[in-house]
Write a protein that binds this DNA or RNA. Structure first.
Lengths: 188, 188, 188, 188
DNA sequence: TACTAAACGAGACGGTACGTCGCGTCTTATT
DNA sequence: AATAAGACGCGACGTACCGTCTCGTTTAGTA
């Protein structure tokens, strides 16, 4: 086996160090603190190497974000579709309002003007873009619990949009009652 | 009164030139193009003067944005609360997906990490923050058309969040049917 | 008088600081030490400003070199052409073997592959290229002291080439007797 | 004897490939083009191997240069010392102004600040440093054709210095008449 | 009408981060 | 043992945009 991608490879050790350092920096100072030079200093990985793995600093931030996202938003399975959805929205909402999550708005809006970053976002968050919500949604559809005038896409917009909007307008995350009301908006 | 703030004043001429140039630049190349030097070149107003009127470039962008927002989203009055709301959401959605509007996500997320800009946003968009929607919402409340489990705040989040989310995830604005469904989410 | 070029101007103060720092660095560690960042640190002038005045680091070095050259190789006037020539060759030889002078070979050979630097060299050393030797040579010609089979150009090559060659091959500068013999090569 | 240094050895095949590739690169783009990575790509020899045979890139260049020098400047034997000298100077002058030769100035001036390279130069060009000129000079001495006030060293400086000086100042090589005049400078 | 204070223009400047390039080292198979 | 493949750290490069500054000029409103 010539090309391994396992832990222990030099590549994956560098990658991990960079992602870790970046996540720390995002946590501490937001997107603005996740400077390439800061990442280098924190991770001990040289700029050369960083740029060999990522096209620019935004893509590093995306990976660091995606990493934490995957860790922090495991999909629930409570038995009922409504409860699962509610649970998931709460989790994601909490993540967005966490230090790393709050960098997401910045990442998204910067990525809007960067071809590389847009593509990177696509591949890193594509399927998990709605954070595993598709599966939950399908369950709810099967149970006949969803509003008939909503496509899945629009439903997701209604569910996630407000979370991001709260974040971006600098207000508190939704509390439990608000999440209930939000989920109610898309179910019958 | 020695120093007036009317048209014709040197100050207000500078201000107008800067706002205009900035709006153009936002239109053409997004927030990234609205460089201070670009604004200077385009407006003919020197950096010295620009920084005498605004604390930093983000605040200039905010004013340029607010200017266009005021122009492009006049409040409707169709007679029925539901229709007014729908109309307004359509207008705002259209504005967000316009070139200048699409810079809004960037403005917001940058402003999140800039005290001056946050304050500026507050004062410039404060009352019109939800774009005159408060009045419309009050009308709907009086007509008993709104869901009882929603506060005004949450309702606005549900209405505006998805618009921004679409913008920020790089997809099309909501079409008319989708806006209908969205508005339906907050009404009985 | 709007645009002055005198001492005291911000521009000329920066320029002087940069040239001075560069000359020091050339002295201490040769061309390799005259890094842009080192020049910035030493001079207190920012990279931005340096690059506003010079197209690249080689051109800065050229100016620093030219500056010292002008200072250190004033033209002699002893009365006799032969003696003047000898004097001048001694002076230039000494300068070449001085710390700054010894960077000259590097400057020249690097400039060979850099269009900007070549042009810069041309303008900075053009007339003084042969270090004022033209005048001395003309005097010698008038006195009928020069070999008839030599053009001025070839004569200068014979006079200066060996100085540079010594430098570049890492040997001592010519001693007085050797300079006498060298000058004798081009005179009758 | 297991490790021979003859053609056919892995070592010597690598060596030859590297030297050849380097010479090509020097020809095409001067010293600046003879990058270690370029040499690797061109020669198919890995960096590991290159650095096993040479301490740094300058030394590779030196060997490539010396190789071509040996090929292109065979010593003449016309019968008369003056003619031999003239011939040799012409040959060397031509070589210096050839693409590979013109990298020589760069090699020398870089080597001036690199201990390894200086040593390398010494061993590779030492005896042939003046390109076999010693022998010719001895012949001329025996014939009583040389100026009595010149040591061999100074004579060589006068002969070779101008060649390099022309090269380094970016002008044409000496033409035949000029070489005649140059040689005349060191003979009676 | 002349004066004076504010506003302004031009542009030099320091600073921070960017993304790139080449060097020479090191690691890990392969031959 | 010598090689290939290529990841890596390092240090310098030249660029971009920020926001500050200095200095000389214009422009209103007053004296």
């Amino acid at each position: 086996m010539t090309t391994r991608n396992e832990l222990g490879t030099r590549v994956s050790r560098s990658r991990a160090a960079v992602i870790g350092a970046t996540a720390q920096l995002l946590t501490e100072g937001g997107l603005g603190a996740a400077t390439i030079d800061a990442i280098r200093d924190r991770s001990g990985v040289s700029k050369t190497t960083i740029y060999k793995h990522w096209p620019n600093r935004l893509c590093v931030a995306i990976d660091a974000f995606a990493d934490r996202l995957a860790l922090d938003t495991a999909m629930p399975d409570t038995g009922t579709a409504r409860e699962d959805l509610t649970q998931q929205i709460r989790t994601v909402s909490a993540f967005y309002s966490s230090p790393v999550g709050s960098a997401f708005a910045g990442i998204l809006s910067q990525a809007a003007q960067d071809e590389d970053a847009r593509a990177w976002l696509e591949t890193r968050l594509a399927d998990s873009r709605q954070h595993g919500i598709h599966v939950l949604w399908q369950r709810a559809v099967l149970h006949g619990e969803v509003r008939s005038d909503l496509t899945a896409d629009l439903a997701f917009d209604i569910l996630f949009g407000p979370l991001m909007w709260r974040l971006v307008t600098g207000r508190q995350a939704l509390d439990d009652g608000e999440v209930d009301a939000l989920v109610a908006s898309v179910l019958v």
